[in-house]
Design a protein around this nucleic acid. Structure first.
Lengths: 201, 201, 201, 201
DNA sequence: TATGAATGAGGGTTCATTCAT
DNA sequence: GATGAATGAACCCTCATTCAT
């Protein structure tokens, strides 16, 4: 059963396990032994395939980072009408963060641990989004008195924070709604608030 | 001067050094040896005073957490008129985050590392803030169709995100403003946006 | 061209590469991986052909040892007149050591590491040389008051030491002669000194 | 009994054990575990005191190297008449090598393994000896046609070789003398041979 | 014959913690 | 209160070797 000798398959499995543990414990908090134990492959094999713990981590981060980038900016690349593109992008991001705590956490770990050359690729994402926003501004879709980075900060910061703390809110205030209901509520009201800021959209 | 056998003083010094290193490297990334080297006290002494690395960490987190709580909720307790209280609180929080990266980072580390019993005390803070908001809502200061936790999420999430990524924004977009100028710009525009959401204030 | 499935050829290539690396780093300092990387053959293949790292080492040592033996004792077997045989043998040994640091080093490594059954075959050499010397002594070619092993020790020890340290001499004393010039100088003076000891020759 | 908490004493013990094992197996062939097992101290402690395996090795080599230097050049510094100084030095060296295989082996290992900065201090020794020889030559004690380094090579190389191979000689030729007798025989005849080369002395 | 995936033992080193001083 | 010697477990990584392909 084991000993299947399919390099790609084992690498994929290792990556998958590593992803979860890195997301949970961060780089320093994760040991090769943890990954080997959970994946069923030996320590040696993990390093045989990935050379180095750091490199394994890098690959994990890159994989997730790419998925995230694709999810969020995908809609913007499809040449939809502006309003629709933005809405889709927002919803896509929201869904992504909602379903994938791994991504959130890896993102934060990467920010804090700041391993050289191992940055979650928010740079590209930010660049893409801001240039998009600037182009909107030029076309008049966007009130000229608000800088896109301020707007973006508000959007992304809020969503990330939401998913980080919604469960605490729920606990503290003893809300009786389910998490899903809360998410819907948040999304609706949040959209409303944005609507007030950008009356055109 | 050192080696003065003043327990409280040494504990304070150790805490101060530990705070910085923990903020920089997180729990797993920090070793007692690092702290002993920077503080000038021996490994043994650090554990003599704090029993355990985990406990030292806990105390660091609690100390910072308390400061934060005090800073942000202080204005709300002073029985000022609502608008002023909120504004002061917002500005206080903003200033706090602006000047103290340590707090930001410890906060995030604590969230991610999630050591048992070592929570950055955002729980109390959130409780305090939301109940405050709810009381405002009752008094009609706050539009009834927006849930306070959504509003809070937006406020706090945005500010935190701002301080986390502003330097990246600056780099990516090659902005020529100084960090201080950017902060001012953000604060002004952000207040504007909130104004649009809460027209009463 | 590679991957030619010619067992003997690959074994020879591996041996050649292994020889160099073993000479450089010794047994413990050499890993199969080093040899596989330099030779272009896989780890597996190396052990397929040589069974074991230790065995590979043994074969390397034996190969070199045989060459050495042949070079040095060759002239003695050719039934030349005594003086000529000795001179040729001396010069042959000198040339061998001069050109082949590999042999010197493997010889020393083997002496130090002393793996069971992996001796550089100085035993045979010594035996051959001493019996030769003893026969000379019987025939009166050699002063009876000097024991051949003392004489041999002086000859071989000196030459080996020379090649081991000549470059250091050169550096320390900042000699301006080239290595070749130094070798010639040494050989000439050394022969002179031997001449004083064995006046007959 | 253990747990004596005397840093200098334990360091000394570790050094002593390390010396033996390094002499036996060389740097690569020795593991911290071997030393810890033989010395009774934990792996951790060894590295606590010596920082690094390499550093421990360096200290071992330096210690031995210093002893050697002192032994051999000691007599030359004592302003004895030339003949006596040389004789004493020669005998001292001979005795040293005779009794202390550790030194011989460490010397050779250091030569072969050639760790950076970890050289057995033959450099200083050679320098001292050759300058001494050159001064002799100037004063006419030494035949002008022989270069001191050639002479030195012969002396040192022969002695070292002797102690390296005498036991093999003995085995191969099935000599019935004891090792001590052989040493005496060698020393006497060797001195004789030198006498023939340097008739003045 | 040849490859390279897979393993388990051992490599040096770091670390939190204990304890004699 | 303070030090630093001492430990044992865990860390990442390398290695010789085996074995499915």
């Amino acid at each position: 059963m084991k000993k299947q000798r399919d390099a790609e398959a084992t690498k994929a499995k290792i990556l998958k396990v590593a992803e979860k543990i890195f997301a949970d414990k961060g780089f320093s908090g994760t040991s090769i032994a943890m990954i080997s134990k959970k994946s069923g492959f030996s320590d040696g094999l993990i390093l045989y395939h990935f050379k180095t713990k750091e490199n394994l981590y890098k690959q994990v981060v890159e994989k997730i980072s790419a998925q995230y980038l694709e999810t969020v900016t995908g809609p913007l690349d499809k040449d939809l009408p502006v309003e629709k593109a933005m809405k889709e992008s927002l919803i896509a991001a929201f869904k992504f963060w909602k379903n994938d705590t791994t991504c959130q956490r890896i993102n934060l770990w990467a920010y804090l641990e700041n391993k050289e050359g191992t940055s979650f690729n928010e740079t590209q994402l930010t660049a893409k989004l801001t240039t998009y926003m600037l182009s909107l501004q030029e076309k008049g879709y966007f009130p000229g008195d608000i800088h896109p980075i301020v707007f973006l900060t508000m959007i992304i910061g809020s969503i990330q924070f939401w998913f980080r703390y919604k469960s605490r809110f729920s606990k503290i205030l003893q809300l009786k709604e389910t998490e899903n209901e809360l998410d819907d509520l948040f999304l609706k009201q949040f959209a409303q608030m944005i609507g007030k800021i950008l009356p055109g959209i």
